[in-house]
């Protein structure tokens, strides 16, 4: 059983992975909701293009996404220079960069889940709320948002799972730096390269399974509560 005891460095990897994934999901939720809203509710020229752009990270090889991030946010990339000059922020080779990579990879899944759920909301209920005296924002907060909640929870779980498993874009964009960008999948990959690393791989793989299971369970419970006793399913 000693083989299952985590070393301090492995605890740090788990902590880093959780930090990167949670920050990524939290940061990408507002834009994901906005994009889902625009795609579900608005009609405009170029909507197909926007839809395709949002979905791009889902179909591109993650390495390509990472390379594009490198081009944009690298030391000489246009966005990277802007961030450095005006805010003093560097993303490359930092855990924040890993979070950005994870966020970009999670975005399409999250937009999809929220959008489906938004499209399923009966818009006539919104009309009822408006006629009862609710302005557009209150209507959104008291009717649209609660009815979209199962989709938002699904988005959070999917986004978290995608983030915690992110590999290709992360290693390309921010490399594999211990303590800074070496998240769970990168650490597993690394341990596989080292002779005698099988025990570490086993431990980290078990942790991955447990984290994913925990995320699913928590979201199921939350969905059931949000559904007010309705049989709610997140995925």
């Amino acid at each position: 059983m000693a083989v299952l005891v985590l070393s301090e460095a492995e605890w740090a990897i788990i902590g880093l992975s959780l930090k990167v994934s949670l920050v990524a999901v939290a940061a990408v939720l507002p834009p994901a909701m906005l994009l889902a809203w625009v795609l579900a509710r608005c009609d405009f020229r170029g909507k197909i293009l926007l839809d395709a752009l949002v979905s791009l990270p889902l179909v591109l090889p993650p390495v390509v996404t990472g390379w594009l991030l490198l081009l944009a946010f690298g030391a000489n990339g246009p966005l990277g220079r802007l961030l450095d000059e005006y805010l003093g922020i560097t993303l490359i080779f930092r855990w924040t960069g890993a979070a950005l990579a994870a966020a970009i990879m999670a975005l399409p899944l999250m937009v999809r889940a929220i959008r489906l759920s938004l499209e399923a909301v009966d818009r006539r209920l919104e009309g009822a709320a408006r006629s009862l005296g609710a302005g557009p924002w209150r209507c959104f907060a008291s009717v649209t948002l609660p009815l979209t909640m199962p989709g938002i929870l699904a988005a959070l779980v999917l986004g978290f799972a995608r983030s915690i498993g992110e590999f290709g874009a992360t290693i390309t964009f921010v490399s594999n730096i211990p303590g800074e960008t070496r998240t769970l999948p990168l650490a597993i990959y690394n341990a596989l390269q080292v002779p005698g690393g099988e025990a570490a791989v086993t431990r980290l793989a078990i942790i991955s399974v447990l984290l994913s299971l925990a995320a699913l369970t928590v979201s199921e419970v939350l969905a059931r509560r949000a559904g007010g006793g309705r049989a709610g399913h997140v995925l």
């Binding site: 006539r124 009309g127 009822a128 408006r130 006629s131 009862l132 609710a134 009717v143 009815l147 559904g227």
Partner: peptide, 20 residues
């Protein structure tokens, strides 16, 4: 006037109660 300022009580054919 937006609907919320019209002070109308609308009873819909299907009730349209908030399910949540």
């Amino acid at each position: 006037l937006p609907p919320e300022q019209r002070a109308c009580g609308y009873v819909f054919q299907d009730g349209r109660l908030f399910p949540h």
